[in-house]
Amino acid sequence: MKLKQLEGLLGGLQQFPQPKEELEQYPTGPHIASRMLFTAENSFEDVSNKVVADFGCGCGTLGVAAALLGAEHVLSIDIDPESLEIASVNAEELELDIDFIRSNVLELGWRGPIVDTVIMNPPFGTRKKGADMDFLSVALKVASQAVYSLHKTSTRDHVKRTALRSFNASSAEVICELRFDVPKMYKFHKKKEVDIAVDLWRFVPASHQRST
């Protein structure tokens, strides 16, 4: 599938009608989501024929993108039932078979190294400090092959240091810098549209054979 085609399909997905501020529900736009998964597949072969988990899936965009690019099994997790409802409708409309779980990503119990790749657009931690790094810590335990994640560019040094030193990642590389358009959705947003710089990261977990 071509990048443009993927972006087009993701652009048709339903998004949060009433975003929840405390969960930092910002939609992952089709531009960013398509580039994340397209790179994961075409530069690193981390998607097709793999088991892929989407942490904090929201309306399901990243998991849908993974399924469109040929992931064999996609498992999308979110704490919010309304998001999961929309995400499952999004999957159904594209005739994709995606498994959903309602859970706090940080509290789910896992057996064995079955998940190959974790993809996520974590809460950036503006409302709950360190939330994105908590997600990353779990992702690096669950994935056996790679983790793709978005973090604010302003935290780049911190993300790299923490991933390598505290979470034992064997590598942590910024693939590209993107602009994240966050339309004015919440009361605390002063400007009409907030444009933040985010990094698309690829992390490789410590061991490919580890069980959790």
């Binding site: 099994h73 498994d99 119990g109 896992w110 079955i114 998940v115």
Partner: peptide, 19 residues
């Protein structure tokens, strides 16, 4: 939910040793 998902989930309740 597929049985592949079932095969990788475990109960994570506090105090549970083998979930």
């Amino acid at each position: 939910m597929r049985l592949l998902t079932h095969n990788m989930l475990s109960s994570n309740i506090k105090g549970v040793v083998n979930g």
